[in-house]
Computed example of a mutant assay.
Amino acid sequence: MTTWDKALTDLLKNQGLDDKKQLEKAFETLLKREEPNQLIRLLGNPTVDELKQLCKSNRVKGYSNLKKDEIVKLFEKSIVTKTYFNTEIEKMDEDQKRLFLQTLNFNVVGEPVESDVTFPKSYLIFETERDTQGKHLLWIPQEIIERVEKWVKQHKELMQLKQQQDLIEAATNLYGLYSFSQLQHLCNQYLEKHYSLLDIRKQLNRLGRLMPETINFRVGDGFITSVGLEIEPNEYAYFLKDAKYYEPDTLQELLYYQTHVFGIDEPTYFNFVSWLAKNIREDNPFNVTGEQLSVEILTMMKHAVEYEMVIDVIYSLIQDGILRKRVEQTAQNKVKPVYMKMRNWVYHGYTFEEYMALKEQEERHKQTNVIDFNQYKK
Rank of each mutant, 00 (worst) to 15 (best):
I145C: 03
G220T: 08
E192V: 12
E157Q: 11
I215V: 15
A171C: 06
Y178Q: 01
L210T: 04
L186A: 06
K135R: 15
Q184T: 04
F126G: 04
L137E: 05
Q182C: 09
P212Y: 08
A170Q: 05
P120S: 14
Q165F: 04
E111D: 12
S115F: 14
T172F: 03
T214C: 07
G176E: 01
D166R: 12
L210H: 07
L177H: 00
K135M: 10
Q184W: 02
G208S: 11
E169T: 13
W151V: 04
I125D: 02
Q154Y: 02
K156F: 11
G222R: 13
F126Y: 14
Q163E: 12
G220M: 04
L198Y: 11
E157Y: 13
D131F: 04
N205P: 00
F119I: 09
D166A: 11
D131V: 00
Y190V: 02
Q182S: 04
L186D: 07
A170L: 05
R209F: 14
E114M: 13
L158K: 09
Q164P: 01
V152F: 13
L186W: 05
S181L: 09
F119G: 01
N173V: 05
Q165C: 07
I168N: 08
F106C: 02
I200P: 04
D166I: 04
N173K: 10
T128I: 06
I144G: 02
E146A: 14
R218Q: 06
V113G: 03
Y190P: 00
A171Q: 05
Q182A: 06
C187A: 13
L167A: 11
N216S: 14
L174F: 01
G222V: 05
C187Y: 09
V219G: 01
Q154N: 09
E127P: 10
N173Q: 08
I125L: 15
G176I: 01
P120T: 14
D116N: 15
V117T: 13
K153G: 05
Y178C: 04
S181D: 11
L138T: 00
F217D: 02
A170G: 03
L167C: 09
K202R: 14
V109H: 06
T214G: 07
F180K: 04
D199G: 15
Q184Y: 05
R209I: 07
N173Y: 07
T214A: 10
Q154S: 11
R209V: 03
E129Y: 15
K121N: 13
G208R: 14
R201V: 09
T128L: 07
L174K: 06
Q160G: 10
L210N: 02
Q142A: 13
V109Y: 09
R130F: 13
G110N: 00
D131E: 01
S115I: 03
G110A: 02
S179T: 14
T132A: 12
T118N: 15
P212E: 08
D199F: 08
